[in-house]
Design a protein around this nucleic acid. Structure first.
Lengths: 356, 356
DNA sequence: CTGAAAGCGCTTACAG
DNA sequence: CTGAAAGCGCTTACAG
């Protein structure tokens, strides 16, 4: 592979001049510029990013450590992160933690060893020493979706409380009184917050959230299945299961189906995080949708701000309820003329109704 | 950030000795080894992978350029690739081409600039000059899922022909005679092969595949929707739509639903690539499943073989049909005692039946 | 506008 | 077993 020396030799200039041309340095004669360009072309020369990084101490690379690539929510997040990063001239390296703290540490370490310019992370746990050290050492860092309290790192996330309240209002209006939740790991903020928001919203209706109605999941499908089986084994099973993410909703569906039960007739189901398939499931699933793309973009902007020496601030985006048929027939059925997919109903509000 | 010099100073040895300790070189005294280890520990030293790569001319990194991260098939592929690579001591950097040749080239270029040790690609098109050059220049490379004919690069992929034959047999047995396909881009091998396999299988039943029954898609949902609308606008619409990937099946479902039609009553639907949600869609969708995880692992092994100077060979894995209810009620309904999810039926055969 | 030289953080023959 | 030195491919003050 041709190096800068080869280009310099071919163009009859010094490597310094080649470097200047490559980096659009103003003080280069048109003549030199042309000869270098020709040599680059002829040799098919491409600068070695490794060498450049070593010299400049920047890799123009962002690390993204996500909890689970197989979760469509995170896949979409990763995609928007890469898109925005590319627009700003950065590449991104994704590390998949698979909801495992040890794997998460592995990726953080590898990314740090590669001297990425900044780290975007959606922590799987409450913060390993490694992660905390990195934050304290001043590695440019931004938390996205989930975060670690007590660390001075900007957080870009959704606030789902209003949407959870809207969900509970919807469920209550449908006559449901025994509501259960499949929670994420208590070590994660989203694992805790969604339960808290749910409990708070239930409280407003004088409803409680007994321990038996809190299933412990880990944001992956299998845990949703197990938790749902637990609910169904109860002497008094819940009327509604609210899964704290889409994969656990998938597991719940598996469990419900395995017992030959029907949604929403036998048990209602709702999920945090909306995905395209929810429109086509049997029945279409009521979900809380985040602005995932915007979240990813905002996180990248915040991180690049930090990297490039600007102040970065936290961002909180609202989530919204998308009503479908998995919790029971809505009181007022959608008009037959409404378009397919999701559509807002009534005045601007966090509640949307989907024809399904 | 501490460098090897700091460690050497702290341990009272030369950087050469530190390097030897770091790389487990045998000829280091126990004493030196201990002092270096202590210094490393005390300083929290981590070797700079960038410098190491420049010096050794290897990055222990694989590039993976996939056609579309949002496609669950590729997400799963990416996950298994990373897993196997990690087991072999490599990292992987994923580039998402989004089915766009220009984006694909962008990622190939960026990956090459970073001097990845090898490239895994599922080409979005017939091969850009850049990709062809890389292959000819001897960059260790392996094609996965899709490939470019006429290039001397190992290919790891599924052969879906038997499964497509099984699908057509299933459809024919259900009484369907007008079968349509939503194809992927003709520039991709999977875009062409699936149509060819379908046409060939139809031929065995004396059925043709008229042009009007070949919808041109690009493996993304929106194209599936458009193609399906085209079918439904026909004077004589097909009785079955076979989508060449899961996202186009999603689009097809959108289109069918928008018209208020029902699957399989009004039109049957089948898809290439199986995903977990297909069990829970309305109705559950008959699909051709690939051994995605095994494909990813085999591709990594082949690539690492090439990188490390061993011979790498192509691998072709069979795909299998998973029958559900989207093409009509199977002639012999599954027994009520069969387990949920997919389950094989009868003797070992490529056809499986799922209770749904 | 241009080049010689230093240096980024490592590894690795080479000599002892 | 150990260290001094060269060198990987760049960039960038410095001097001219």
């Amino acid at each position: 592979m041709a190096s800068i020396k080869d280009v310099a030799a071919k163009a009859g200039v010094s490597v310094a001049t080649v470097s200047r041309v490559l980096n659009d340095h103003p003080s280069v004669s048109v003549d030199a510029r042309a000869r270098v360009a020709a040599a680059v072309q002829a040799l098919g020369y491409r600068p070695n990013a490794v060498a450049r990084s070593l010299r400049t101490d920047q890799t123009r690379t962002l690390g993204l450590v996500i909890s689970d690539v197989l979760n469509p929510y995170f896949t979409e997040l990763a995609r928007s992160v890469e898109e925005e990063a590319r627009a700003l001239g950065y590449s991104v390296i994704i590390g998949n933690a698979d909801e495992r703290p040890d794997l998460q540490d592995h990726h953080v370490r590898t990314l740090l060893d590669r001297r990425i310019d900044g780290l975007l992370v959606s922590p799987t746990d409450g913060g390993s020493p490694l992660m905390l050290d990195a934050a304290h050492a001043g590695t440019p860092m931004v938390f996205v979706d989930r975060w670690i309290p007590g660390v001075d790192v900007p957080v870009v996330r959704s606030d789902g409380r209003a949407a959870v309240r809207a969900l509970v209002a919807h469920l209550h209006g449908l006559g449901h009184r025994r509501l259960a939740i499949i929670a994420g790991p208590a070590a994660t903020t989203t694992g805790r917050e969604r339960v808290d928001a749910f409990r708070e919203a239930l409280g407003a209706y004088g409803l409680g959230l007994p321990d038996a109605y809190i299933g412990q999941g880990d944001f992956q499908a299998e845990s949703g299945r197990r938790a749902t089986e637990g609910f169904l084994d109860l002497a008094e099973p819940p009327e509604v299961v609210f899964a704290a993410d889409n994969l656990m909703a998938l597991g719940a569906l598996d469990a419900i189906r395995a017992r030959g039960l029907r949604v929403p007739d036998d048990i209602a189901l709702a999920a945090f995080d909306d995905i395209r398939w929810f429109v086509h499931t049997d029945p279409p699933i009521t979900a809380i949708a985040q602005s995932t793309g915007e979240l990813g973009r905002a996180a990248v902007r915040a991180l690049v701000d930090r990297i490039e020496g600007r102040r970065a601030s936290s961002v909180t985006l609202p989530a919204r309820l998308v009503v479908r048929r998995s919790c029971g027939e809505p009181p007022s059925p959608p008009s037959p003329s409404s378009p397919p997919g999701t559509s807002p109903v009534g005045a601007p509000s966090p509640v949307r109704r989907s024809t399904s």
